[in-house]
Simulated assay, not measured.
Amino acid sequence: MIRVLIADDQALLRGSFRLLVDLTPDCTTVAEAGTGAETVALTAEHRPDVVLMDVRMPGMDGIEATRLICGDPATAATRVLILTTFDMDEYVYGALRAGASGYLLKDTPPPDLLAGIRLVAAGEAMLAPSVTRRLIGEFARRPEMPQTVARRLDGVTEREREILTLVARGLSNAEIAERLRLSLATVKTHVGRLLNKLRVRDRAQLVIVAYETGLITASRDSA
């Protein structure tokens, strides 16, 4: 059972999301929060698997709440899925760098939202297509990365770089296994090693590393 905390400053939306979650056999709502501070406190109390996090909330916003949740060892196991009306650049990058495992818009169809909850609960990344396009465009505009950033891939094997590239392009473990003709267990092992070597918490952070180090660029991503 996936335990979900719903954070949104609009009670009507919280109720709608709760109904959707609670009608899903493998999900249940453990708490609702209307502010960022309340979200942090309730996450510490209930230790949900996933927080559905709004960005704009009174006082502490969702990005700061995400940073506190993901940065606290007591709640770091909780995954945060940003669910917002806004897909502005500063929100996207701020949320992912704060530790969010996914970013969806509120016009996402209910089946896709539920799929997103399941994916981030399983350690995958969930990014709306528009968010992926923004990531590609943002890093394509950046100048060459400093050597100190590029050195972050020192110690990463050629096979791991290949898998990191496919992760950054949005492929699941199963899709990577099929593409490279590897077993699913082997792909999972490589992804786990990448998480450890690069010192990141999940696949969303791997995507950022792939772009920041120049391993993948807009031109190569479209190839």
Rank of each mutant, 00 (worst) to 15 (best):
M1P: 11
I2N: 00
I6F: 10
A7Y: 15
Q10W: 14
A11H: 09
R14Q: 09
R14P: 05
G15P: 00
D22R: 01
C27A: 01
A33W: 15
G34P: 09
G36V: 14
A41L: 15
A41K: 13
A41R: 15
L42A: 13
A44F: 05
V51E: 04
V51F: 13
R56G: 00
R56T: 09
P58Y: 10
P58F: 11
E64V: 11
L68H: 05
C70K: 14
A74S: 06
T78I: 07
L81A: 03
I82H: 08
F86H: 15
F86K: 02
D89V: 14
Y91F: 15
V92Q: 03
A98G: 14
G99V: 10
L104H: 00
D107A: 00
A115L: 10
G116T: 11
A121K: 03
A122R: 08
E124P: 02
M126D: 02
P129M: 09
A150I: 15
R151D: 15
R152C: 12
L153C: 13
V156K: 07
R159T: 10
I163M: 03
T165C: 06
L171T: 03
N173G: 12
E175L: 01
A177L: 04
L180M: 11
R181H: 09
S183K: 06
L184H: 08
K188G: 04
K188Q: 14
T189W: 11
R193F: 11
L194G: 03
N196W: 04
Q205T: 04
L206C: 10
A210G: 08
A210C: 11
T217R: 13
R220P: 05
